[in-house]
Deep mutational scan, measured.
Amino acid sequence: QGDIVVALYPYDGIHPDDLSFKKGEKMKVLEEHGEWWKAKSLLTKKEGFIPSNYVAKLN
């Protein structure tokens, strides 16, 4: 089961498979690959890669 993270900063995706998000948006982490994680937005239901240093895990 994936962790839920919250965006600390907004992110505008650079690549087509990036997931753009707004500050405060919550996402479910699907896979962790070093600095880039695959996640699904709980708001938009879209999936893509996010920079892990832009988010914090919720406990």
Rank of each mutant, 00 (worst) to 15 (best):
K28R: 14
M27N: 00
T44P: 00
L58D: 08
Y54I: 06
K26C: 14
D3W: 15
K28N: 06
D17I: 07
W36A: 05
I4W: 08
E32M: 15
D12C: 14
A7F: 01
H15Y: 12
E31P: 01
L19W: 02
V55H: 01
I14A: 10
L42N: 03
L58E: 08
W36F: 10
K46D: 07
L58M: 11
D3R: 13
S20V: 07
V5F: 10
Y9R: 14
I14Q: 12
V5C: 12
P51W: 04
S41P: 00
L43W: 15
V5Q: 02
S41D: 02
K57G: 07
A56W: 09
M27C: 03
D3S: 14
W37D: 02
A7S: 05
Q1F: 13
A56I: 15
Y11H: 05
H33F: 12
P51I: 03
W36V: 10
G13P: 07
M27T: 00
K28D: 04
K38P: 02
H33K: 11
H33C: 14
K23T: 08
K38E: 05
K57N: 07
H15I: 05
G24T: 02
W36H: 07
S41A: 04
K45Y: 13
G48K: 01
E31M: 09
K38D: 00
L42F: 08
P10I: 06
G24V: 00
E25M: 03
T44E: 03
A7V: 02
E32R: 14
G34D: 06
K23A: 11
H33Q: 09
F49V: 07
P10T: 14
W37A: 06
I4E: 05
W37Q: 06
K40F: 12
N59Y: 11
D12Y: 13
I50T: 00
E35T: 12
E31F: 10
K57C: 09
K57F: 13
S52E: 05
D18M: 12
E32A: 14
E31G: 08
L19K: 01
I14S: 10
P51Y: 04
E35P: 12
A39N: 00
L58P: 07
K40R: 14
D3M: 15
D17Q: 13
A7R: 00
G24N: 06
I50M: 03
D17E: 12
H33V: 10
K40W: 10
Y11D: 00
V55A: 05
V29L: 15
K40V: 14
D17P: 07
L8K: 07
N59I: 13
K40D: 00
L8E: 03
I4P: 02
D3H: 15
G34E: 06
E32F: 14
F49Q: 07
L42P: 01
K46V: 06
D3L: 15
E25Q: 04
